[in-house]
Design a protein around this nucleic acid. Structure first.
Length: 261
DNA sequence: CTGGGGACGGGGCCC
DNA sequence: CGGGCCCCGTCCCCA
């Protein structure tokens, strides 16, 4: 599911949202998120505290020798498939399996003590080194990972974050503290509100260097700039036609070009 | 139908 | 740690 459109569906009935309904923020938020939280919901400190904080439990994590974030679910970032070289793409569903795999790998090296000597097992968190993998694994299990993999869970949905700051930022998307004084619409962040206010004022601070056309939104200018480019950003794998927007490429693909792979 | 614009949302990064 | 900004992305609408 697209990440940001639970919110908007409520306005589908008409072109322009009826903000008069926004006496509370209720309309903005998908109701199922708040079954137990009658609106308006003001973010309260406790949602960030112990209840939401659940250490360890989350990461069934990946490659022991990568960054602590290596196994972080894609919720944190753009969905990019793991590099093929990431052999840790084994099934991590069982907490023991990664270790077992590594140990298995080591077993094959046991015949060559020099290899073991050369391959120090270093904790990527505290830089301690171990001569055996199991030593490192034990260390990580008991010390570093347990501390580093703290997760901060959103009280309103099931998202989890590695930092409190990230969680707080996310929670704003539920509480929508920035309210437009003109129409009452609420936003998660001040700059989103700023952009919205431009729709009232007509201010368009971003202008195209090629045609001087002005835009209220930088992203829209960026998209517009694509229209001046011969080779656009999104290319069809089949016919090499390029498109200024991903959505246009998708439409193109769905309309038939790439159907018969 | 297609291409483009408008409005908006979310995570990450930087200061 | 928090705010501001950037970048990427989506949906909707219209010419």
């Amino acid at each position: 599911m697209p990440r940001s459109f639970l919110v908007k569906k409520h306005f589908n009935a008409s072109k322009k949202p009826n903000y008069s309904e926004l006496d509370t923020h209720t309309v903005i938020i998908s109701p199922y998120l708040y079954e137990s939280y009658p609106m308006p919901v003001i973010p309260k400190p406790e949602i960030l505290s112990s209840g939401a904080y659940s250490p360890i439990t989350v990461w069934t994590t990946t490659a022991p020798f990568h960054s602590p974030l290596a196994g972080f679910p894609s919720a944190l970032g753009r969905m990019s498939p793991p590099p093929p070289s990431d052999t840790s793409s084994k099934d991590h569903s069982g907490s023991e399996s990664p270790i077992s795999d590594e140990e298995e790998r080591l077993q094959s090296k046991l015949s060559d003590p020099h290899a073991i000597e050369a391959e120090k097992f270093q904790c990527n968190l505290c830089n301690k080194t171990y001569s055996t993998f199991s030593g490192l694994a034990k260390h990580k299990q008991l010390h570093c990972d347990a501390q580093s993999r703290k997760s901060f869970s959103c009280k309103y949905c099931d998202k989890e974050y590695v930092s409190l700051g990230a969680l707080k930022m996310h929670i704003r998307t539920h509480t929508l503290p920035c309210v437009c004084k003109i129409c009452g619409k609420a936003f998660s962040r001040p700059w989103l509100l700023q952009g919205h206010i431009r729709t009232h004022t007509g201010e368009k601070p971003f202008s195209c260097p090629h045609c001087n056309r002005a835009f209220a939104d930088r992203s829209n200018l960026r998209a517009h700039l694509q229209t001046h480019s011969d080779v656009k950003k999104y290319q069809c794998k089949n016919c090499s036609k390029t498109f200024s927007r991903m959505s246009l490429l998708h439409k193109h693909e769905e309309s038939g070009c790439c159907v018969a792979h």
